[in-house]
């Protein structure tokens, strides 16, 4: 397999999504600040969303929205895969919900008299 064919075979969306997931994961595992962890999760989520949508990516096809009833039959041959799109829509909203909750945990822990470092919340152990 030639290098060019290999590069052409790469799904650029999937690749950037996967790298973003790794970046987010790196943040989650290495930044002690609660808010930073939430940021990292949000980056990771974006990465996951890209990975999901990458599966529906078909070069040169259009959005799965019909202009009029006339070309309904032929249209399906021009459109991309709608399923990953539907899934991502759901995933994005769920991601927001998780982020909001995580942030309110962070806020509550902070305003409750702690600091923002996860290392200071390890009282339960062993």
């Amino acid at each position: 397999m030639s290098v060019m064919a290999f590069i052409a075979g790469i799904n650029p969306v999937a690749a950037s999504g996967a790298v973003l997931v790794l970046v987010g994961l790196w943040g989650v595992l290495s930044r002690p600040n609660l808010f930073k962890i939430a940021v990292a999760f949000s980056v990771m989520e974006t990465g996951v969303n890209l990975v999901i949508l990458s599966v529906g990516y078909i070069r040169g096809r259009t959005a799965p929205i019909l202009d009029s009833a006339a070309d309904a039959r032929s249209a399906s041959a021009r459109m991309t895969d709608p399923v990953p799109q539907a899934l991502v829509l759901t995933a994005i909203v769920i991601g927001l919900a998780v982020t909001a909750l995580m942030l309110s945990y962070a806020v509550r822990l902070r305003t409750g008299g702690g600091d923002s470092s996860i290392e200071s919340y390890g009282e339960e152990k062993w």
Binding site: A15, I58, R59, I65, A72, M79
Partner: peptide, 30 residues
């Protein structure tokens, strides 16, 4: 992620959605 590559055609399920959604539900946006 790399092995998945870029699809050339939507899968059977996707095609079914694309064909049935406008016909059965009358929705332009699949």
């Amino acid at each position: 992620a790399f092995r998945a590559g870029v699809q050339a055609e939507p899968g059977a399920l996707a095609t079914e959605y694309l064909e049935t959604a406008p016909r059965e539900l009358g929705a332009a946006n699949v």
